[in-house]
Amino acid sequence: MSKQQEKLDQAARAAWMYYVANNTQHEIADHLGISRQMAQRLVAYAVEQGLVRVSVQHEITDCLALAEQMKARFGLSLCRVVPAGGESEGLRRMLAVAGAEVMTQFLQSEAPIVVNLGSGRTLKAVIDELAEIDRPQHRIVSMVGAIATDGASNRYDVALRTAEKTGSKYFMLPAPLIADSAEDCRQWCSHRVYRVVSELSAHADVTFIGIGSVGPGCPLEEDGFLSKEEIGQLVSEGAAGEIIGHAVNHEGHPLSSPITDRVTSLQLPTAADRPVIAFAGGASKHSALNAALRGRWLSGLVTDEESARQALALTG
């Protein structure tokens, strides 16, 4: 056994004693024959390595009520609302934990399924929270280009990580998220492998996506997919947000623009056809989330209290 494996085993043992058996750090130290400081570090290491997953069984009444209102107002078949958390990493973690629970319901299927995945920070956090589950019969499809503008791998393409956690087959979209020109986009999208992946995606059993803001400093600009000037152009043309790279206006309709003509991402299935579930929250996502809800792109949503309240108030 390697030293790394020994450390993980020791950390897991400490985590079981602390979180399940309710032992104190002093008791853990005595039982394992280590110092209290080492026991404390082992418990922290277990959390850091993802060995500990928190599940809160009692759902907050206000959150349950908001979820039901969101389902009724926007025709959602599934909605989870987590407590408000501002713009903190804590909010993203809450969304990730709730999102992983929702995603697991589908991934646990014994029957083979095709799973579409978008990209983005929140969706990546959801995947990080997923427990490993052996499902080699599933097929995982990336709906966004796996190549960044500079030729590097898109670090927020989460499909490969999901395939690794499930042992599923992974289908990569062989294109950059945004091509250099509309003609270049047509060439990427006419590639044989692109068409094969597109056809598989069109028959997916479920789709999981994030929702992106469009504005100064948004992820599309921060990650180098579009310039500051191009983001400004999209805003001036009425962009409220983006869904897997496709810009939508405030009513949720696809935005027609020379920039959107360069997006290679696959098309979302109709929400009424098969489940399309989004994970999004925080004030910076309000405009984009409202647009996605108005456009009826979603059949499921995991969001936070503040986002749900403002969506309901804005459409009331």
Rank of each mutant, 00 (worst) to 15 (best):
V197K: 15
S198G: 05
S198P: 05
S198D: 06
S198V: 02
S198H: 08
L200N: 05
S201M: 10
A202V: 14
H203V: 15
A204G: 15
D205V: 05
V206M: 08
V206C: 10
T207H: 14
F208H: 11
G212C: 02
G212S: 14
G212F: 00
S213L: 00
S213Y: 03
V214N: 00
P216Q: 15
P216E: 13
G217R: 09
G217Y: 09
C218G: 13
C218V: 10
L220K: 01
E221K: 10
E221H: 15
E221Q: 07
E222R: 12
F225K: 02
F225R: 01
F225V: 11
L226H: 06
L226A: 08
E229Y: 04
G232S: 13
Q233Y: 13
Q233F: 13
L234K: 00
L234I: 04
V235D: 01
V235Y: 00
S236V: 03
S236E: 14
S236L: 10
S236A: 15
G238Q: 14
A239W: 00
A240M: 03
G241C: 06
E242H: 15
I244T: 09
I244P: 01
I244F: 00
V248N: 05
V248L: 12
E251F: 07
E251G: 12
G252Y: 06
H253W: 14
H253A: 13
L255Y: 05
L255I: 07
S256A: 04
S256H: 15
S257T: 11
S257E: 03
P258E: 06
I259G: 07
I259D: 03
T260V: 10
D261S: 11
D261G: 13
V263M: 07
T264N: 08
L268F: 14
L268N: 07
L268G: 06
P269H: 15
T270F: 13
T270G: 11
A271R: 13
A272N: 14
A272G: 13
P275N: 09
I277G: 10
I277D: 07
A278N: 06
A278I: 02
A278Y: 03
F279L: 03
